[in-house]
């Protein structure tokens, strides 16, 4: 499948594997992000969210996705950006990620979805070192497409693992 992330990128000899492939890109504020298309299950509009107590702020709550209850995570809040009113372009990108207890589906609230694009290995750079201010662990790499930068997210890390740890810390 062309959608598989297969190639590797290098920087200073260090290799980052599995970054080339198709990405769904979306907008958060002024930045554009991408997430591996194979992780994406579906894109839905915002529906009414039921708040769940004792969870991190960025967990907006849960929704009913065709009889299945899934958590919704506001990526703006997760990345410590300012919260904004939902517009009619606001979307939920449902991704399937590896959590602690196997795979789970989580909805990511984003400002808007842009497109699906193929990003070649040579167009991907490893995440730059921002020092301590930004958590670069969430980032697979930086995709350069037509002079624009797409921040490629590691969905397993963003919504999978850290997520459970944050919840446990709240209990």
């Amino acid at each position: 499948m062309a959608g598989e992330n297969t190639a590797t990128v290098t920087q200073g000899g260090a290799k980052i594997s599995g970054a080339e492939g198709k990405y769904l890109t979306f907008i958060l504020g002024d930045e554009e992000y991408g997430v591996g298309i194979m992780k994406v299950r579906e894109i839905i509009g915002v529906m009414e969210i039921t708040a769940v107590p004792h969870t991190p702020e960025y967990i907006k709550g849960v929704i009913n996705l065709r009889g299945r209850v899934i958590p919704i995570m506001d990526l703006r809040l997760k990345f410590a950006m300012e919260e904004r009113e939902y517009t009619d372009r606001t979307c939920v990108v449902v991704v399937e990620v590896q959590g602690q207890n196997g795979s789970m589906q989580v909805g990511m609230l984003v400002d808007a979805v842009s497109e699906v694009m193929n990003i070649l290995a040579e167009d991907i750079e490893p995440p730059p070192d921002f020092g301590l201010t930004t958590d670069a662990n969430n980032i697979l790499g930086m995709g350069k497409v037509k002079g624009e930068i797409k921040i490629l997210l590691d969905a397993d890390r963003v919504v999978g693992k850290g997520f459970m740890a944050d919840i446990e810390a709240m209990q």
Partner: peptide, 9 residues
């Protein structure tokens, strides 16, 4: 139903 990944709240 369980709350997806939100367990043991």
């Amino acid at each position: 139903k369980n709350l997806g990944g939100l367990q043991e709240i």
